[in-house]
Design a protein around this nucleic acid. Structure first.
Ligand code: ZN
Ligand code: ZN
Length: 467
DNA sequence: AGGACACCGTTTGTACTGAT
DNA sequence: TATCAGTACAAACGGTGTCC
């Protein structure tokens, strides 16, 4: 583009470009009040873009300082009002930025055009139709992915809060019993601009509210960094991808087939196990371990993790577990018939406890799964001697990393108090599960006839550890 | 019937904050 | 320092009820 010289009173701007957004940028490149009058002028009859491609603009007599020019050079690609820079990957004005932040995740039901989905969006008409404005935002290159997720917002908030605490602590001597109640604003603040109660985007509101700290952690350090959060997100994705990955490598059992006998049930479990394995294989620290150690960890730790793993696919309503859409859902009745009511109730209690955590935040369970698969001697079965790890240090390092990640995630996202509570719950119930699981593992082979033992899938044979 | 107007929840625009 | 997410808050909007 070219902008030619200007006399003291007039400036002529010529735009030569195929990029409409550039044209729009240049269109309104002087001080806002003046631009407004120009736009109003042409807008009475719905300006067509071509008409304003080349436009003569009179600059105000007063000389504009350089800084003014700098902030006024850009034009919103959505509505053509003055812009400052990129917002969500497009050059937009502040109001389109705010609009996009508030509406980008709404669907066509919440934002519906009352005309023909082709409303013109200008600085004056932009607020007349949210649907078309959002459509134009997206068409103009604004990117939903640039919105921070609830978790990311919580992380950011925590960081700010942490900094505040730190600076106030270092600046003023800590007073003992301070009755001042100026901690609140942070908490109320988040809600004020959140979607209103009427909006259906309640999930987000709830998320953010839940994520807020209840009490400031006395800890000064060790909160989740953005990288950490991305890692957690990747882990969640890996977990979701396990189904497809496992399917690609081939399953020894058809998960769409209903299992009737105990043998069938056990064999059908190979699908769950292989999927879980596919999840772990996506974890770099796990995958980098040497083969022997990997096999050892899987062989001794995978099956006990089933109870945790299943909570992620548990449907509270139907009380069934279903990992993939096409899978046959199954329930706990087999446990009751095989192990009896007493055992069943104990397992159920533990399961429900984990299930509550899973329902609260699946990522906690996913991180716990990784932490626990990396836990040496986890099966704690005195009868079976577990092989020694080749590179125990690497396993230990990986395990510490994920333990810490889990803790940081818990503390940052759910707050210190909740983190303690959840962590306690996880550990306590897992310890009782260990004991119970040992008992079950020892009993299971007794329930099968020798012939059935023979029909066990090889993978299940090795996972159940018979011999 | 209908215009003027207060009321009130929602939406929008803008100033400002803070991390990177 | 510049940039770009976010929050805070006030103005604008739009639907509703009330009075005349
Ligand atoms: Zn705009
Ligand atoms: Zn429209």
């Amino acid at each position: 583009m070219d902008s030619t010289t200007s006399t003291s009173k007039k400036r002529r701007i010529m735009i030569i470009t195929a990029d409409e957004s550039v044209i729009e940028q240049i269109q309104n490149n002087t001080n806002a009040s003046f631009i407004k009058s120009i736009v109003l002028d042409g807008n009475g009859d719905n300006v067509e873009v071509s008409q304003s491609n080349i436009r003569t603009i009179q600059a105000e007599a007063q000389s504009l300082p350089a800084k003014k020019q700098k902030t006024g050079t850009l034009t919103c690609v959505v509505c053509s009002s003055p812009a400052n820079g990129y917002n969500f990957d497009a050059i937009t004005c502040e109001s389109c930025k705010a609009f996009f932040r508030r509406n980008a995740l709404k669907d066509s039901v919440e934002l519906e055009c009352r005309r023909g989905n082709n409303c013109d969006i200008t600085i004056d008409s932009r607020r007349r139709c949210g649907a078309c404005r959002l459509a134009k935002c997206l068409k103009s290159g604004m990117n939903r992915d640039r919105l921070l997720t609830a978790e990311q917002k919580a992380v950011k908030l925590r960081k700010i809060e942490e900094n505040r605490n730190l600076t106030t602590l270092t600046h003023s001597e800590p007073r003992k019993d301070n009755q001042d109640e100026d901690v609140k604003p942070i908490i109320t603040a988040v809600h004020s601009d959140a979607p209103s109660p009427k909006s259906t985007n309640l999930l987000l509101v709830k998320d953010v509210a839940d994520l807020l700290p209840n009490e400031p952690p006395s800890e000064k350090q060790g909160l989740l960094s953005l990288k950490d959060l991305q890692r957690v997100e990747t882990i969640q994705l890996s977990y979701e991808q396990r189904i497809e990955l496992a399917a690609r490598e081939g399953l020894p059992w058809n998960p769409t087939v209903h299992a009737t006998t105990l043998l069938d049930h056990i064999n059908s479990h190979s699908v769950t196990a292989l999927r879980l394995l596919s999840f772990f294989k996506q974890i770099p620290e796990f995958n980098d371990l040497n083969v022997h150690d990997r096999v050892t960890l899987i062989k001794y730790n995978l099956m006990p993790l089933t109870i945790l793993n299943c909570t992620l696919s548990y449907d509270v309503k139907t009380e069934t577990i279903q990992e993939a859409k096409s899978d046959v859902p199954w329930d706990s009745s087999i446990l009751l018939t095989v192990h009896g009511d007493q055992i069943y109730q104990r397992v159920k209690k533990i399961f429900e406890s984990f299930s509550r955590i899973a329902k609260y935040d699946q990522r906690i369970i996913q991180l716990a799964l990784i932490t626990l698969i990396l836990t040496k001697g986890f099966s704690a079965n005195s009868n079976v001697s577990e092989p020694i790890l080749n590179d125990g240090l690497a396993v230990y390092r990986a395990q510490s990393y994920y333990t810490e990640l889990l803790w940081k995630y818990l503390e940052t996202v759910h707050g210190y108090g909740k983190a303690i509570h959840i962590f306690n719950e996880l550990v306590a119930h897992f310890m009782s599960w260990q004991a119970l699981q040992n008992y079950l593992a020892r009993n299971l082979p007794k329930m099968l006839t020798p012939a059935e033992m023979n029909d066990l899938l090889p993978i299940m044979k090795s996972l159940i550890n018979i011999q």
